[in-house]
Design a protein around this nucleic acid. Sequence first.
RNA 1: GGGCCGAUAGCUCAGUCCGGCAGAGCGACGGCCUCUUAAGCCGUCGGUCAAGGGUUCAAAUCCCUUUCGGCCCGCCA
Length: 563
Amino acid sequence: MTGEVPEIDVDLDEDAIYDPYAVGTSDQRAFWADAVADAILETEPDDPIVIKGGVSPSGVPHIGHFNEILRSYFVAEALRDRGREVRQVFTTDDKDPLRKIPRTLADLEWTIVDFGDDAVDSAAVGQNLGKPYTDIPDPFGCCDSYGAHFTNLLLDAADLVDVPIEFVSNTELYEAGEFEPVTRDLLSRADEARDLLSEYQDSVDDEYTPFTPQCTECGKLTGEVTSVDLDAGEVEYTCTDLEAGDRTIQGCGHEGTATLREGKLPWRFEWPAQWDILGVDFEPFGKDHAEGSWPSGEDIARNLLDVAPPVPMVYEWFTLNGEALSSSSGNVVTVAEVLELLEPEVFRYFFVKNPRKQRDFSVETLDQLVDEFDRFERVYFGDAEPRDETEAELVERAYPKIVDSVSQQQPVRIPYTFAAVLGMTDDLELRETMARREGHLPEDATPEQVHGALARVEQARAWAERTDNEYNYRLAEDLPDVDFDEATAAALDDLADFVETTDDGEEIQGEIYEAAKRHEIEVSDFFSAGYRLFLDTDQGPRLGPFLAALDEAFVLDRLRREA
RNA sequence: GGGCCGAUAGCUCAGUCCGGCAGAGCGACGGCCUCUUAAGCCGUCGGUCAAGGGUUCAAAUCCCUUUCGGCCCGCCA
C-alpha cells in the first residue's frame, strides 16, 4: 500500500481535461500520474474506472510499447490509491491488416529471427498481405495466427514487468458483434460521418463509407462498398486494390456481400467505437495520434456516437541508442533483452519520468539509469536528501509503484558498475567476499539481503559483455602470455612472499608500492603487470583488496608465473 | 506548404504551465586514506538554459523569428 495522496483543490476546466498535451502537467502534483488521476476524477467516472491502451500485434514488441502498459499502470495505481476500482484494459488491435513484410520476427522465447530464416514460414506471411492479423497463419506454427503469436508476446511482456492487464482482442469484439450497433449507426448516418471526418482528412470524398468489408474470396480488407442494406445487415462491395505505403496490395476484383461483422471500421471510427464499447475513461497515446486521430476521435465520440471521450494523454516517443525505434530497420530491444540487463524495478522507474520529453534509452549508459534509480530508492528510505520538495513528493508517490512491494528494510544495492566488475568471476563466494571487502555489503546484512544485492551481478555482467565496456573484466583463468623484465619479476616474487603472510588487502596494496620502489620500477607499470597477470588488461580494480579476496594459492601461483 | 511536441552542465535529468540568485545526481578534476587505477571522505570546476529579437524593475520561464530532432495533415494504425 502506498502513502497518502496529498489532498489538494483541483480546479481543471474542460479544456485542460481533454487537451492531451495538458493532461498530467499540473504543477500541483510532483508525479504526472497523480495529475492525470486528477483530470480523470474531474470527469466523475463510475467504478470501475477503465483505463485502456492498445497496439497492433504487427511484430516484435519492443520497449516503446511499454508506454501503453506502464504509463497506464501508474495512472491506475494513482487512482487505486484514492480508493477507486480500476480496470486496466489493453486491446490488441488484431483485426488490422498486415500492410508490409516485417524484417524481423521473434519466437515465443523472444529470440529474434530474420524474416528469411528457415524457422520462419515466410510464404504464409507474404501471401497474406492485406488480411487481418488473426487470419494469417503463425509463421512459427505455434499459435493460432500471426496476430495470436504477437499478442502472446505482448501478454508475456506485460507479465515480465508484472503489470496485470485485461487483454481484449479486437477481432473477438467484432466476432461477438460488439461493434455491430456502432457500425449500423454509422452506416445509417454515413453522410454525417463523412462530413465530420472530411474536416480532418482531405481525402474523404462522397464515395467514403465508414466500413471496410473483408472480401469473402481473398480474405483481404480491401473492399470498396458499393451499396448498403441496413435492413438485411449487409453491404455490397468490390474487392479493390489497397494502397499501403509505396506499395499496392492487390484486390481480387470479387464482387460480393458482407455482413456488418465481416469487416472492420476504419481506425478513425474504430478508436472512438472502442471507447464506447469498453467504456474507456482514460487512454494514453503516442504523439503520432495527437494531431490526427485524437481530434477527430474526440469529435466523433461527442458528436456522432454521443459518448464522452476518455481523458487523453500524449507521451513522447523515445529513441534507442540515439536512433528511432524501428522494427523494420531492426533498431529494437525487447523487454526480455532489457530484463537481462536491468532489474524490473529499474525498467519501471524509466517510465516514471516525464512522458512529455523525448528520451533516449541508451544501453551504453544504462549504469546511469541504475544509479539514478538507486538514489531514488535511497531518498525514499531517507538515506539520501531529495533535491527539493517536488522530488520528495515524487519519490513518495512513485517508488511504491515501481517495486514489487515496499520492503521493511531498505534493500542493499551494490553499484551497478561494481556489480559488473564482480561478474569477472562465476564464483559466488568470491563475489560476496569482494563485495564485502569493498564495503558494499553491511556487516549485519542478512543472507537474503546479500543474495538480493548480488542478484544484480548477472544483469550488470550481461551489460558489460554486451557493450564490451571498461567494466568487462574477466578473471584470467590461465596464465596470460607475459614477458616481464628482471626487476618486475623480482618485485612480483616479493609480492607473492608478502601475500603469503597476510590476507589484509590494504597491507597488500601498500606492499605493491613498496615492492615497486625497492626494485626501482614505475609504480604504474607494476600495477599494470598485476592487472595483466590476473585480468589480462592494463587496469582494473584496486589491486590489493582484489588480490586479498582471491584464493591465496591461486594468487601465489599466478604472481610467481607458475599457473 | 499548414499545424503540433521537444532542446537546460561532459552524461541522465528537475525547474517552464503561474517571470524573482542557474539546480540535482553521476562523471571530470584536486586533496585525504603509508596508496594514480572498482570503494570511502573532503573540496573544486563545470552553463550563450539551441540561436536572435521583443515585453518587463526582473525572462530558462511570456511574445515573435530562426535552427536542430521528431510527429500529424493517408479509404494506415
